[in-house]
Write a protein that binds this DNA or RNA. Structure first.
Length: 421
RNA sequence: GCGAGCGUAGCUCAAUUGGUUAGAGCAUUGGACUGUGGCUCCAAGGGUUGCGGGUUCGAGUCCCGUCGCUCGCCCCA
């Protein structure tokens, strides 16, 4: 192919096994979101740039260097959404959903865009499935969200392959205190920190916990813990959530260092990690954001949300789950005289929702069998002069190689019983 | 934005310190086999060695540039 037409870096085609798992994740997520009482919402991919600048935070890395932003034909500043929450909040306010309790719990599934350098588990266009729950500050809400995610991962078969990590980043009341404690601690040990951390000190001091530098990590061992400075209310939120998770036997660990990169989070935050992906190991994450709705000019309404990274979850599934083999049949005919007969049979099979490949257009029988083998079908149904005359088919199990002739009226039964003597 | 590694057939990889016409397996196509796939055997097609320049009698191999991919940092899902 002419390379001028090749796909853009970080943008991929999804098909085959990947798409199977993609759909599995999407369907499982949708099923549970609905069971838990969430309503689906489809949101625009393109929004005003200002929405994300305000929502995610001017100082965040996403806004500073990762957005696909440009001017549209009307000279408006627009951005391809890098995440879902800001848009959901916007839609919540713009459609006055506050007035209708039915739409206080929303979920979305769709593509997100970030202009980063691609690497394992990181793409420029990726997909997230997420929920947002408006109107309550109760830790029960935090728990409901996390437990829903737990059951989704359980149904997908990977709940025992991942780690749940929980923390609290505090609220308006206690975070400023903590930040000032941390800043004075930092200044006491200023020389022991790396250049990056010195920059973090001024930008967002909490991020120093994300530093991979061993010397910084070592210094931070003695740093004040956020847990020790949480206000009573925040402490109550974290304790209640973790109690509920323990009671429901959802395994988790508390990590003082867990800080989220989006500025809007308050109180409880969490992340789900899978070790097999490489450096980009967070397959889901989220938390409480009690100030974002008012930030957009709405009333002061607390909220909680999380999102699953679909591509990263696909990686996890591929490493742990076998692809199921579905029932399928190849229809082979000996000569063109039996073409109509095999089309009749195809009709019968498809009526029973059996995946049917008609191969009559492909060469001789030997060639058809070869193709049937490549397609990986469970059975070959072979029709020739004799079968046509007697209204029968030859049914061959492609795995065992066993073959019987069966009357047409018994074909479906035979296939469903999957038994050939 | 920064750092490292890698670009040879559709795929996975060979090719002696630079040395004839760049090879093999898998895959594809045809045949052995005109009513039976997988296994075997035979044959065929498939390459501007990512691209451009340089060094050299001679470059897949060395040098420079460029593009692409991968991994990591940053950050996040």
């Amino acid at each position: 192919m002419d390379e001028r037409f090749s796909r853009l870096r970080g943008f991929i085609d999804i098909y085959g096994e990947d798409l199977y798992f993609f759909n599995l994740i999407e369907n499982t997520f949708r099923k549970y979101a609905e069971i838990y009482g969430f309503e689906e919402i489809k949101l625009p991919i393109l929004e005003r740039t200002e929405l994300f600048v305000r929502g995610i935070g001017e100082g965040s890395d996403i806004v500073r260097k990762e957005m696909f932003s440009f001017k549209d034909r009307g000279n408006r500043d627009v951005t391809m959404r890098p995440e879902g929450t800001a848009s959901v909040v916007r839609a919540f306010l713009e459609n006055n959903l506050l007035n209708d309790p039915k739409y206080h719990k929303l979920f979305y599934i769709g593509a997100m865009f970030r202009a980063e350098r691609p690497q394992a588990g990181r793409l420029r266009q990726f997909h997230q499935a997420g929920v947002e729950w408006f109107g309550s500050d109760s830790p029960l809400v935090d728990f409901e969200n996390i437990s829903m995610l737990w059951y989704i991962l359980k149904e997908l078969g990977i709940s025992d392959k991942v780690d749940f990590i929980v923390n609290s980043v505090g609220c308006d009341k206690c975070t400023p205190n903590y930040k000032s404690y941390l800043t004075s601690f930092f200044d006491e040990h200023y020389d022991k920190f790396c250049e990056d951390c010195k920059e973090r000190r001024n930008k967002n001091i909490l991020r120093i916990f994300d530093c991979k530098n061993p010397s910084c990590q070592n210094t931070l061992k003695n740093a004040p813990k956020i847990k020790e400075t949480l206000c009573d209310n925040c402490k109550y939120h974290l304790d209640t959530l973790t109690d509920m998770m323990s009671k429901d036997k959802i395994p988790f660990s508390i990590e003082d260092n867990l800080v989220r990169g989006l500025d809007y989070y308050t109180r409880n935050v969490f992340e789900v990690r899978y070790k097999g992906i490489g450096a980009q190991n967070a397959i889901a994450g989220g938390g409480r954001y009690n100030n974002l709705v008012s930030e957009f000019g709405g009333p002061s309404i607390p909220a909680f949300g999380f999102a699953i990274g679909i591509e990263r979850t696909i990686i996890t599934l591929k490493e742990n789950i076998e692809l199921p083999k579905k029932m399928s049949v190849a229809l082979c005919s000996v000569s063109s005289k039996e073409t109509n007969f095999s089309l009749e049979i195809a009709k019968i099979l498809r009526k029973e929702k059996i995946v049917t490949h008609v191969l009559s257009h492909i060469g001789n029988l030997s060639k058809q069998m070869k193709v049937a083998n490549k397609l990986g079908v469970k059975f070959a149904v072979i029709v020739g002069e004799e079968e046509f005359r007697e209204k029968k088919v030859s049914l061959k199990d492609m795995e065992t190689g066993k073959q019987n002739t069966v009357p047409i009226e018994n074909l479906i039964d035979k296939l469903n019983n999957k038994g050939l003597e």
